[in-house]
Design a protein around this nucleic acid. Structure first.
Lengths: 343, 343
DNA sequence: TTGTAAGCGTTATCAT
DNA sequence: ATGATAACGCTTACAA
C-alpha cells in the first residue's frame, strides 16, 4: 500500500515467491502452477496492481505511444483527424500524445524534441504555416524514425504522406461554379508555402483553363492567415464600388468563405444570385449558415485512421519507407448547397 | 550511434569516464572540472544526446506529464480549453496526453486506467455525458492523486472544480430576452445528469420568475444529444401549426440554437422578429450565421489555464485538496447579436 | 515449477 | 574531482 501503486515486488514479498514468478503468473506463462497463478492474481486484484508502463517502456525500449503534431485543434478538420488517430491507436494498444504548434515554427521544433525525449514510437505530422525549414524532420527520417505526414506535406525525399486530392477537389468545385454559369471566379488562396495551397490553386486554374476562361492574375488573392476578419477585409476591398466585380468566389477553406459571405451581404450583394461561393473542408457550421455553403469535404477521420495504420505498420516493421506507396491520396467530395446554385 | 539514441553510457565509454561524471557534467554540478564539462558537453552535442525521459520518469517516479480527459475535441469549447492547458503545461515543462471519451462511459474508465499505468502526474477531467457512476474518480481522489475537474463537475466530496457561472450566464441571457419584450421563452436544455444543464435551467427559471413570468413545464425540452438534427426536429415539432407558439428560445448551446434557427426559418418564421434566439458557448460560427447568434461566451482558454495551474500546484504540493477554495467559478459574458434584438 | 541475476537509462549516495 | 553501486519496476535467459 504505502503512498503509491502496488508493484510486482509487493506481491512477491507478500506471497514469498520471486518477482519473476509473479511476472509469469500474471501473464499466464506456461510452467507456473495453477495454484500460484490463482494466488498471485488474487492478490494483484486486491492490491489494485497495475503494470507500470514507464518501467515497461524502459525495459522494452518501446513506449506504445505515438505523437501527433498539428497546427491547431480548433480547426475542425484537425480535430476530426485526431479522432481517427485515437480510434486506431487505442484499438492497437497505443496512446496518443498531442502537441499543437499554434502555427509556430519554434513550437514545432520543441515539440519534436519533447516527443523524442519521451521515446515515442512514431509520429504523425502536419506542420505549421511558418515551416519552410524541414531539418528537424529530416533528421528523424534519416535515422529511420517512423514518421508519417498528413494534409500538409513537406518537400522531402523518402517521406510517407497521406493527403486528399486537393487539386481534384478544387478543380471540381470551380468546374461546378462554371457549370452554374459563373464566369469571373476569384480564388481566396491559402499560405503560399503550403503544398495544399498550391494544389488547390492549380485545380482552380486548370478548371478555368479547361473551360476556356482566361484567369486574370488579380483573381488570386492570398489569405495567409485564413481568418474571418482577413477575408472580410479582402472581400470588401474587392467588391466595393467595383463596376467589373467578380461573380463567384472559390475560397481556400470555409472560414474564409464564410467571411467573404458576410462581406458580400454587408455590401448588399445576394448569394448566390449575385455572387456564388464555394469553400473547402466542410466545417461543422457550413451547412448551418445562410445560405448553406457549398464546399469540398475532406475525410478527416479517414485521414487520421489511414495515417495511423501506416505508422503502426512502420513501427512494427511490417513495412518500410521504401516498400510503401509514398503518397496515399484520398478523395474529396463536392457538397453542393445553396451558396453556389443559381435558381 | 548504432540503431538508437546516444546514452550517457556511450559518452562515458568514449571519454573514459564514469556515467556519474557525465551525468553531473551535463547538469553543471559543482565539483567537475571545466575541462571535463567541456569535453562531455561537446561530445553530447556531437552525438545528439537527448536525455531519456522514460528512464527519468522511472528513476524519479515522476513523468512530467499530465492527462486530459474530455468528451470530444470537436467541441469548440473543449478545443479552446486544451489550448489553455497546453500553454500552461508546456511553460512548466509538462507534457499533455489527451484522451477523448466520445461521451462513452466505458471509454472514460479505460482512459483513466491507461493514464494511471503511464504514471501521469495528474489529470484534468470533464466527464462524459453517460457518466453517472464516479467510482473511477473516487478511487483517485481517495489516494490523493492530483485531479481537477472542469466544466462538467461530479457530485463528490473533496474535489477541486473549475467552472463558469452557468447559472448567471443563463440568467442574464434570459433576462435579456425578457428585456427585449419576449414573453413565451422556451428552453432547449442539456442532458439532465450534467450539473451545467441543471445550472442553466435554474438560471432560466429564476430569470422568468424574477420578471413575474410563470414558466410552463412544457417550456423545457431536453436535447440530450445536443446535435443540430435533434434540435431541428424538436423545434419543428414545437412550432409547427402551433397557434400559441413560443416567441423565444434559450438553447443549451450554440449548435442546438443553430439547429433551432434552421427549423424556424424553414417554417417561415423570422428571427428575431417572430422568435428571438440565444445560445451558449460562443462557438466559432456563431457570429457568422444569419442572423448572428446572441450567446453566452465561456472563457475556455482561461478555464484550461486556471485548471492546469491548480493541478500543477497540487502536483508540486504547493497546495492540497483541503486548503484550496474548492470551486473556482469564472464569469461568462453575454454577447448580444441580432438573433435576440427586436428592432 | 520456481529462483537468480542482469539490464533498460538515469541519478543519488557513499567512497576514494 | 571522479568512481562504484544501488535503485526505480519489469522481463528474460539461465540455473536449479
Amino acid at each position: 500500500m504505502k503512498s503509491g501503486q502496488a508493484t510486482i515486488k509487493d506481491i512477491a514479498r507478500e506471497l514469498n515467491v520471486s518477482t519473476s514468478t509473479v511476472s509469469r503468473a500474471l501473464k499466464d506463462y506456461p510452467g507456473i502452477s495453477d495454484e500460484t497463478k490463482r494466488k498471485v492474481k488474487e492478490l494483484a486484484d486486491k492490491l489494485h496492481y497495475r503494470p507500470n508502463a514507464v518501467a515497461l517502456s524502459l525495459r522494452k525500449s518501446k513506449s506504445f505511444t505515438i505523437g501527433v503534431i498539428i497546427p491547431e485543434v480548433v480547426h475542425f478538420f484537425f480535430s476530426t483527424v485526431i479522432s481517427g488517430v485515437e480510434e486506431v491507436a487505442f484499438a492497437n494498444g497505443y496512446n496518443v500524445i498531442l502537441c499543437q504548434t499554434n502555427e509556430k515554427f519554434s513550437r514545432e521544433r520543441s515539440s519534436v524534441e519533447t516527443m523524442l525525449s519521451n521515446q515515442i514510437d512514431g509520429v504523425l505530422v502536419s506542420f505549421s504555416r511558418e515551416t519552410t525549414n524541414f531539418d528537424h524532420f529530416k533528421k528523424m527520417i534519416d535515422r529511420e524514425f517512423p514518421i508519417v505526414f498528413f494534409d500538409r506535406i513537406p518537400d522531402l525525399e523518402n517521406t510517407i504522406n497521406v493527403t486528399v486530392n486537393d487539386y481534384q477537389g478544387a478543380y471540381n468545385a470551380v468546374k461546378h461554379l462554371i457549370d452554374q454559369g459563373f464566369k469571373k471566379i476569384v480564388h481566396l488562396s491559402g499560405p503560399d508555402n503550403l503544398a495544399i495551397s498550391k494544389q488547390r490553386k492549380e485545380g482552380y486554374l486548370d478548371a478555368l483553363k479547361d473551360s476556356g476562361i482566361v484567369a486574370k492574375p488579380e483573381w488570386i488573392l492570398e489569405c495567409p492567415y485564413g481568418t474571418e476578419k482577413e477575408s472580410i477585409s479582402i472581400t470588401t476591398a474587392l467588391f466595393k464600388n467595383n463596376e467589373n466585380r467578380p461573380d463567384a468566389i472559390f475560397a481556400h477553406h470555409d472560414i474564409v468563405a464564410a467571411g467573404a459571405m458576410m462581406a458580400l451581404k454587408s455590401l448588399g450583394l445576394k448569394i448566390p444570385e449575385d455572387v456564388g461561393v464555394v469553400g473547402f473542408s466542410n466545417w461543422q457550421f457550413s451547412s448551418m449558415i445562410d445560405p448553406p455553403l457549398s464546399t469540398v469535404s475532406q475525410p478527416g477521420f479517414q485521414i487520421g485512421e489511414t495515417a495511423t495504420k501506416i505508422l503502426l505498420d512502420l513501427i512494427h516493421k511490417k513495412t518500410n519507407m521504401e516498400s510503401i506507396s509514398q503518397n496515399i491520396v484520398l478523395d474529396t467530395e463536392l457538397l453542393i448547397r445553396k451558396s453556389s446554385v443559381k435558381v
